[in-house]
Amino acid sequence: MHPRDWITVTRQGIYIEPGDFHIDPLRPVPRAVVTHGHADHARPGHGATLATPETLAIMAARNGGSLDGADALPYGETRRIGDVSVRLVPAGHVLGAAQIVMEYGGARVVVSGDYKRRPDPTCAGFEVVPCDVFVTEATFALPVFRHPDDGHEIAKLLDSLRLFPDRAHLVGAYALGKAQRVIALLRKAGYDRPIWLHGALQNLVDLYQAHGVDLGETRPATGAAKADMKGEIVMAPPAALQDRWSRRLPDPVTAVASGWMRVRGRARQKGVELPLILSDHADWDELTTTIQEVQAGEIWVTHGREDALVHFAKTKGLHAEALYIEGYEEDPADATGGGG
């Protein structure tokens, strides 16, 4: 049976008929399998939610502490749902992020969710799973998106601190994943001063620390004295950067850590003074390498620049097609929950 006959796209998202479940459903469903904790993929309100224990912890933390119908499946273990066998494999995107490996009717399908290939000190690395159908994201699927080395971007931030020692450095980063990765990379670069946090980041920073990711000392920025944050690194969700919240900081240099910062016009348009090209998504090279490494007979491309990636796959003789799903953040630069 061809996977096209048992996998369909509905209003809720990707539906797996022989298992009667949805993947990353956009609206409440009886049974969901969730790839990772970003708000546009992990919506609350499903009857049952299967995900990694880390992803369920993230969802619970964002849901006020608990999550009904949580069903944990650690990486590598197999679970049978209906007639489908399901396994979760690290996707390298954020803590707990998983590719969903499904086997049914003699075919293996991998829904990769959001992923990246480069090492990230805050989460398990992506594993290549050979398969018949590979469902890939395409957030940065244009050859202009080649994320530089992490260390280079962190050095840019540290260099700016040296040049502007009296200014706070306000780094906009998504609350889940990016914020913790930036902190971990700073620590790796030897930066050991306390890092000041917007209230919206505290929860998940604590959660990462509880999962064994050492992020060093953090302090709440809200309520702190202005003068104390001179020359310090302050982190906030991107939406807070130009909001009234930022007026509490001493003459801040505004930085944003995102793959979108690769395009200067984009950074300028958003009023970002210090663009840091740090992304939790695969860049062009990672996407094009991955779709070849999995040796899949078919590549299905979801959210992002499907056109460019499908074109590339065809030039390599791969069978690729776009899978149109509405609702994931195509341009999460303004969102607080999404990737980038």
């Binding site: 050859p143 202009v144 200067r264 460019a308 074109h311």
Partner: peptide, 26 residues
Amino acid sequence: RCDPVLFYLSYDYVGDLAETLALMWQ
């Protein structure tokens, strides 16, 4: 030097010719 389809998709996104080529040059 570039695949023309990918170049024009990229140029359309970036909006600046010099920057597009700079970013996608390999």
